[in-house]
Amino acid sequence: MTDERLFALQRRERLLDELWRHGSLRVRDMARTLEVSELTIRRDIAALAARGLLTRVHGGATLPTDLDPVRRHRPAATPFTIGMVVPSLDYYWPQIVSGARSAAVALGVQIQLRGSSYDQAEDRRQISRLISAQQVQGLLLAPNLEGEGLDEMIDWIGDLPVPAILVERQISRWTPTPRQLGWVRSDHALGLEMAVRHLHEHGHRRIGLVLSKGSPTSAHLAQGWHKACAELGLPGEFVVRESVALDVPGHREIIRGILRRCRTSRITALIVHSDPDAMSVAQYLAEQGLAIPGDMAMVSYDDEVAHLAEPAMTAIRPPKSRVGRLAVEMMVSRLRAGRRHPAQRVLVLPELILRNSSVKRAAGV
Rank of each mutant, 00 (worst) to 15 (best):
G203S: 08
S357A: 07
L221N: 05
H22F: 15
E193W: 11
V167P: 00
H307L: 11
C262K: 03
R21P: 10
V136P: 01
V162H: 07
M296I: 05
L259W: 07
V167T: 04
D159Q: 14
Q126E: 09
V27P: 09
V272M: 01
H22Y: 15
P178T: 14
T217S: 13
P79E: 08
A61E: 00
L160R: 05
H220M: 11
G250A: 08
I316H: 04
P79D: 10
G182I: 03
A76T: 12
V86A: 06
R51G: 09
A121T: 12
R12M: 14
S265P: 01
I127Y: 00
L290I: 04
W174H: 15
P342A: 14
G191E: 01
V109E: 02
L141K: 10
R263K: 14
D29W: 08
R260Q: 15
A46L: 10
V70R: 13
G182V: 06
T177F: 06
S215T: 13
I157F: 06
Q180Y: 12
A100D: 06
Q135P: 04
D3Q: 13
D90E: 12
K360H: 13
E4H: 15
V323S: 00
A230F: 10
E122C: 08
Q223V: 13
P75M: 09
R339I: 14
T81N: 09
V240I: 12
R12S: 11
G108F: 02
S243Q: 03
R5T: 15
A133N: 09
A50T: 09
A100F: 02
C229D: 07
V281R: 00
Q283T: 03
S172Q: 15
R129M: 11
E242P: 00
V323I: 07
L259N: 05
A363Y: 09
L130P: 03
H273L: 02
D68Y: 10
S37K: 07
G338T: 13
G83R: 03
R179C: 13
L48R: 03
